[in-house]
């Protein structure tokens, strides 16, 4: 996954993947409608609390990158509009977007997500394809890292920057996609996978009281943010 997971499963990890996804999607969509910094800050506060409860530990480099990114965006916004409230709202909205991702992605194992998706009318092939993307994305990223290392060793002796990019990264990645396809297809079929046949599912996630509680809290936050934006709290 893109986010480093907590070392042990917290209550956030145990929530139904669709509940977490709904909150992530809902907050992202709602943040697009808000312009009041205090309302956006409230959404951000909820997401931050979830983030802390899930014991997600982003690396220092990632925090630094996010801070620089948000700082640059805020600075550019302020420079363009000369309106601190507008710049703050833009920055907070982006922060909501960034934090809404790990609510689901950082606390849900690919296997859990695919198990939840197995209950939907999606074809089994589609569900397994999704699982394959999550499973092999890090492997592919590691391969790209090695390609870049090989390119660093070659230096400028092997042509200009474009040639090196093309021959050293683009072409190997295309071969990599085909290699993965051949190997994974064979391995999947050897494990009895058929895109047409139905599959059973071990430990399919089911929604419970904790999910209802989490949804209610999220809904409460959304209502409060809405009140700050359009109700008596708005200037």
């Amino acid at each position: 996954m893109f986010w480093s997971e907590a070392s042990r499963r917290t209550v956030i990890h145990r929530l139904h993947p669709f509940v977490k996804m709904a909150v992530g999607i809902g907050f992202t969509g709602f943040a697009l409608c808000l312009r009041e910094p205090s309302a956006l800050a409230l959404l951000l506060g909820f997401l931050l609390s979830t983030f802390v409860m899930a014991r997600l530990r982003p690396s220092g480099r990632r925090i630094l990158f996010a801070a620089l990114f948000l700082g640059a965006v805020t600075g550019l916004n302020f420079w363009a509009a000369r309106d601190p409230s507008h710049a703050a709202a833009y920055c907070l909205r982006l922060a909501v977007f960034l934090l809404a991702i790990p609510v689901c992605a950082g606390t849900t194992a690919p296997q859990e997500l695919t198990r939840a998706l197995a209950r939907t009318p999606l074809p089994p092939g589609m569900v397994v394809a999704l699982m394959l993307v999550w499973r092999f994305f890090p492997l592919m990223a590691a391969e790209v890292q090695q390609m870049r290392q090989a390119a660093r060793l070659r230096g400028r002796a092997c042509g200009g920057a474009l040639t090196r990019l093309y021959r050293g990264l683009v072409v190997p990645m295309a071969f990599c996609v085909l290699d993965y396809t051949d190997r994974i297809t064979l391995a999947l079929e050897l494990r009895g996978f058929s895109p047409e046949a139905g599959r059973t599912c071990r430990r399919q996630p089911a929604a419970g009281a904790a999910d209802a509680g989490f949804l209610l809290l999220a809904l409460g936050t959304v209502l409060a943010a809405g009140w700050l934006q359009w109700g008596g709290g708005a200037p």
Partner: peptide, 25 residues
């Protein structure tokens, strides 16, 4: 074997083939 594993945990990996063969939980 890196290309032969589709899940992230050992027991889930063992279950993967059984799920494909329609075994009960």
């Amino acid at each position: 074997v890196a290309y032969q594993t589709f899940t992230d945990r050992v027991s889930d990996e063992v279950a993967f083939g059984l799920e494909n063969f329609g075994a009960s939980e």
